[in-house]
């Protein structure tokens, strides 16, 4: 600003411009948010008597966490844990294979239009429902047990990895693909020489991450009868054996920590 400008307006105040420039829109949003919060909070019913009752149980629960009981139910825990692990391995392996196929098909820059639409739709459907709902359906179809669990995990793995792989492929550097194409390479050669090297590190990272997620999910889908540590956990809950519940939860947390440690080491070596 020039000096003359400053003279004509001796006091120039400055305020930080608000995030939303339009004042009316801004206030509508603020007030709307406030009203929503009031309505939402008032719809939460709090039963004081029940809360007091719960306090006693909370004490038992925390006591359980502080002194987890691995011993009494050890054979159940062991079986459930190993089942979860095997489910995770199988579901992740098959999920990765399927998601490679669907991910390639769902990448706009590689696949033809009809293939793209079909693959994208499959991915969208497999992501739409929560794992637990898929598990309910699969348990109804395949019966109780880890098979339904594995199928559930495969579906959600494909939805997750397939979509992310397709997005990764869509953002690769295209000139490398052009260069390989101009040597007279076939579609498969183009994929292995120009696409795979560009997406491999990230895809490996995502697959490891999915391995970890699948293990955690396997603890949940057992609730509806799809096998794994989740089944053991539900049983413990139903019997009010909170020290066993605590033991199982601690093992899950330890497992996730371990998985993350391993994954970060592998990622460091691959990248």
């Amino acid at each position: 600003m020039s000096a003359t400008n400053t003279q004509s307006t001796p006091v120039r105040t400055w305020r930080r411009p608000p995030l939303i420039a339009d004042a009316r829109l801004r206030w509508t949003l603020y007030i709307g948010a406030a009203i929503y919060l009031v309505i939402a909070l008032s719809s939460v019913e709090i039963n004081i008597v029940r809360l007091f009752e719960g306090a006693a149980r909370a004490k038992i629960l925390f006591a359980g966490v502080l002194s987890p009981d691995f011993v009494t139910r050890w054979s159940d825990i062991r079986v459930g844990f190993l089942e979860s692990l095997t489910m995770t391995v199988v579901a992740t392996a098959f999920g990765i294979l399927l998601s490679i196929v669907l991910g390639l098909g769902a990448a706009r820059n590689l696949a033809s239009r009809p293939v793209y639409v079909v693959c994208r739709s499959i991915l969208a459907v497999s992501r739409a429902f929560h794992e637990l709902i898929i598990a309910i359906l699969f348990v109804a179809m395949f019966g109780f047990g880890p098979f339904a669990g594995v199928m559930t995990l495969i579906v959600s793995t494909v939805g997750f990895l397939g979509k992310l792989l397709a997005e990764e492929i869509e953002t690769i550097e295209w000139n490398a693909v052009e260069a390989v194409t101009s040597t007279g390479a076939s579609w498969l050669q183009r994929v292995t020489y120009a696409v795979v090297p560009q997406v491999l590190p990230r895809f490996l990272g995502l697959s490891l991450y999915r391995l970890d997620i699948n293990f955690r999910e396997s603890a949940v889908i057992g609730i509806v009868g799809a096998g794994g540590i989740g089944a053991t956990l539900t049983t413990a809950f139903d019997r009010y054996e909170f020290d066993a519940v605590a033991a199982i939860l601690l093992m899950i947390i330890a497992m996730v920590l371990l998985a993350e440690y391993i994954a970060s080491n592998i990622r460091k070596r691959v990248l």
Binding site: N47, A55, L132, L249, M255
Partner: peptide, 28 residues
Amino acid sequence: LVTSRSVNSIIWALLLVVILGPGMLAGI
């Protein structure tokens, strides 16, 4: 952070329903 992330929200809900009783509060 790791503890919060390792335990699925369904399992958190299982725990909280035991403590707070069924209802939205446990869900939130």
